[in-house]
Design a protein around this nucleic acid. Structure first.
Length: 455
RNA sequence: GGAGAGGUGCGAGAGUGGACGAAUCGACAUGCUUGGAAAGCAUGCGUCCCGGCAACGGGACCGUGGGUUCGAAUCCCACCCUCUCCGCCA
């Protein structure tokens, strides 16, 4: 496909917000204030822990304090001009200077108040989840998710299928004991054909997304700063889910969504260049605090896992079309591998903090006799764009050329470790070997099946 | 890590205390001109906040934060980033 170069514009934001950004990102406080009731109603249960009364109070305080500071400054500006005029006219200016000096102190006070209010307001605002799209089923939790479609044939086995960790350990390609020794629980070691399978999957996914689906490949930093984590919504509310370095203010990324979406933080994109589609393979790091006892064995829930991510920046009018498309791109990987799966729409109660609408792809796991998440594809609408200051300038010739926030989307395409799980389980043979999906064989030196490896 | 230079609008680049939100050139947009284009001419062209239906009015922003001053892009301090050289390193 022909890719037009995208010229970028660094955003020169207002000083107050630029200053804030060192600690906290830009947030659209005006939008919030004007739509407080609407937001509260639409959020419903999703907004149960938002301090709405404080929010309203702080919004009004901010308005009042802003007006006051600006009036005082206006006086000061006029007064200073007067001083300059008097000096030029060689007239005495002492009185005016003294008055302005006093004014300056008042401004300092008023500005301090305003700053405190804005800081408090922003902190609350950043903890408000995104509004669900109208098409999202209202529900309390995962039990009210709605299945959209199924694909593939569920395999049948003559004997009960083994869980992937047994299959993998028997083959000698997964080693959880040594992983625990060198790191701890919720880590894995893959060896031999297992490691190669992981690498083959990464390459297969990246190749498909870059050559067939039009994504641009990115290798981003795996450690990022606080504004970046705030831009995509991980901070300030979910700091306990992240690994943080001790000596520097860096966090390990929980998904490539974070660095890739923030590629364009504080930028104004040209509409001509949209949609922008990126794909990135990265390891992902998650503390999994609060998931004790869940999926304690195997590759399902680890502190470190590999994922190929898809990220899209688009205009608001096209974002839902893009969500379908992106979900289809993730599905095409499962289809290529011939893994049975289903697509579900998450209900309002099961959706993540930043999402407006989410489709989960769930792959069939024979040992569990159920579908398990392998990809999550979301439209964030302008939620991340507002936090991260990502806008676009309408294409030339349009009458109303005001900039607007882009919509951001992302999806796993796919979680690599869980894909290994699905392959080991769905394609396990009675003799303990595992058949390799044909599309992966070129990536594995022609290997057709994995058999027991002696180490 | 050490030494030096530097960070201004979409880009280049001027600006060392007051008439600077910022010259000039380029890019871009609209219009005129043209068979069409180029060139030329004219006009326009930053972002954010507050108020306003709007027209518009006001405020802020020259890497970030703080300070000096009646007044800061301009002076002082700290930090961040970029570049050059040295050290170290894959």
């Amino acid at each position: 496909m022909v890719r037009r170069p995208v010229s970028l514009t660094l955003r020169n934001s207002g000083a107050r917000f630029q200053a804030f950004f060192e600690e906290q990102p830009v947030y659209d406080l005006k939008l919030l204030r004007d739509n407080l009731d609407h937001i509260r109603t639409t959020l419903g249960r999703r907004g149960h822990d938002v301090p709405w009364a404080d929010l309203r109070k702080l919004s009004e305080e901010r308005r009042a304090a802003t007006t006051q500071v600006e009036q005082l400054r206006h006086e000061l500006n006029k007064g200073s001009e007067e001083v300059a005029r008097l000096r030029r006219a060689k007239e005495p200016a002492e009185a005016a200077v003294a008055a302005m000096k006093q004014l300056g102190d008042r401004i300092k006070d008023a500005d301090g108040t305003l700053r405190k209010v804005e800081e408090a307001l922003t902190d609350v605002a950043l903890r408000i989840p995104n509004l669900p799209h109208a098409s999202v089923p209202v529900g309390a939790d995962a039990s009210e998710n709605v299945e959209v479609r199924r694909w593939g044939t569920i395999p049948s086995f003559s004997a009960p299928p083994k869980p992937h960790w047994e299959v993998g350990e028997n083959l000698g390609i997964l080693d959880f004991d040594r992983a625990a020794k060198i790191a701890g629980a919720r880590f894995s070691v893959m060896t031999g054909a297992g490691a190669r399978l992981e690498r083959a999957l990464i390459n297969y996914m990246l190749d498909r997304h870059t050559t067939k689906h039009g994504y641009r490949e990115v290798i981003p930093p795996l450690m990022v700063n606080r504004p970046t984590m705030t831009g995509t919504g991980q901070l300030p509310k979910f700091e306990e889910d992240l690994f943080r370095l001790r000596d520097e203010e860096y966090f390990l990324i929980p998904t490539a969504e974070v660095p890739v979406t923030n590629l364009h933080r504080e930028e104004i994109l040209n509409e001509d260049g949209l949609p922008l589609r990126y794909t990135a393979y990265t390891p992902c790091f998650r503390r999994e605090a609060g998931s004790y006892g869940k999926d304690t064995r195997g590759l399902i829930r680890l502190h470190q896992f590999n994922k190929v991510e898809l990220v899209v920046f688009t205009t608001p009018d096209r974002s839902y079309e893009e969500l379908e498309r992106l979900t289809g791109h993730a599905e095409s990987i499962l289809q290529g591998l011939n893994l049975p799966y289903r697509v579900i729409t998450l209900s309002t109660g099961d959706m993540g903090f930043s999402a407006a609408k989410t489709y989960d792809l769930e792959v069939w796991l024979p040992s569990q006799q159920q579908y398990r998440e392998i990809s999550s594809c979301s439209n964030f609408e302008s939620f991340q764009a507002r936090r991260a200051g990502i806008k676009y300038r309408p294409a030339g010739g349009k009458k109303d050329a005001k900039t607007d926030f882009v919509h951001t989307l992302n999806g796993s395409g796919l979680a690599v470790g869980r894909t290994v799980v699905a392959i080991l389980e769905n394609f396990q043979q009675p003799d303990g070997s595992v058949e390799i999906p044909s599309v992966l064989r070129p990536y594995m030196g022609g290997m057709e099946r994995m058999t027991k490896e002696l180490v």
